[in-house]
């Protein structure tokens, strides 16, 4: 569906994208996962024909993003990061405008957006600017779908959105996938990686890894422990100064540590006891995507500096 080969892009001195290569298959939800500034939006703009890369090739459904941009613009749907609809038009008017852009009508592809649009239809005469965050998002998605695109680009659709609306959106994406639409979605929330079929982890313009979330986790080669005690902020400091601990980060109600050399639970337990910790709990755990990302980002930084 999408083929990206050695794409690079520079803004002035800043290397926004560095030799990015991946493929997206038909009918999959592909996630670009990375923090702000990792190059997700730039990559989106290149794929949606809004920007031209400095080097490399990118193809969308067989069309070249530079040469055949007109063809691509006909078959893709795009939802930019910001809420980019007309705030001073009503819900219905917005949808009409976007339908007309693609020379279609609301009725023609209504079946596709029905599930989503029916939730906001009661407010169709409200100005888009007066909608709540979740409803704006549904409207934006309806507008991006109105012409029945074969490929949908969603740039950070869940940023600043509460967990409930986020879950809802992912539910909608699953459904669209069943309707045969391929989806490329970017997000800064690592925990959403698990909802994608495959992901590309991105950091500072580099692609750290492209794989299924499961495989990325399987490839994690470090020993990961979770540690907790009655004084979590002191625990963090104490763990950080331990010479055998490579990294230590707070994760929810525990801290995750990786080890340089094998030490035993008991050794660590005793070390912490001596420092006055109580209710110490140490467990071996399997990593999440976030652990993998931090590990890969660290390695990536090492590679870049070498």
């Amino acid at each position: 569906m999408v083929k990206v080969e050695n794409i690079s892009k520079k803004y002035g001195k800043v290397q926004a994208l560095n030799n990015i290569t991946f493929n997206v298959d038909k009918g999959e939800i592909f996630g670009l996962i990375g923090p702000d500034g990792s190059g997700k939006t730039t990559l989106f703009r290149i794929l949606t024909t809004l920007l031209i890369a400095d080097s490399g090739i990118a193809k969308v459904d067989g069309y070249d993003v530079v040469k055949d941009y007109r063809e691509i613009r006909k078959i893709i749907g795009y939802m930019p990061g910001r809420f980019s609809l007309y705030q001073d038009l009503t819900v219905k008017e917005n949808l009409e405008v976007f339908a007309s852009i693609f020379n279609t009508s609301i009725e023609e592809n209504y079946y596709l957006i029905k599930d989503i649009y029916s939730q906001i239809e009661p407010y169709k005469n409200r100005y888009a600017g007066a909608l709540s965050g979740g409803m704006k998002q549904k409207l934006a998605l309806s507008c991006a779908l109105i012409h029945k695109p074969v490929l949908l680009f969603l740039d950070e659709p869940t940023t600043g959105v509460d967990p409930v609306s986020r879950k809802e959106l992912w539910g909608m994406l699953k459904k669209l996938k069943e309707d045969g639409i391929s989806i490329i979605v970017s997000t800064a929330y690592m925990d959403e990686a698990g909802l994608c079929d495959r992901v590309a982890l991105m950091s500072k313009g580099y692609c750290l890894s492209v794989d299924t979330p499961k495989n990325i986790i399987q490839k994690y080669d470090k020993i990961l422990w979770s540690v907790s005690s009655n004084n979590m902020s002191k625990l963090l400091k104490d763990l950080k100064i331990h010479s055998e601990i490579e990294s230590c980060f707070a994760f929810g109600d525990t801290h995750h540590i990786t080890l340089k050399n094998r030490i035993t639970f008991n050794e660590l337990h005793n070390y912490l006891m001596k420092l006055g910790h109580n209710e110490i709990e140490i467990k071996t755990i399997s990593p999440g995507i976030e652990d993998c990302f931090m590990d890969l980002a660290l390695k990536g930084a090492d590679d870049a500096s070498n």
Partner: peptide, 16 residues
């Protein structure tokens, strides 16, 4: 919002 996982945690250390 949008900050990478490592920076986010460093930020919380600052809060602590």
């Amino acid at each position: 919002g949008g900050v990478d996982p490592a920076s986010r945690r460093q930020f919380w250390e600052l809060i602590y």
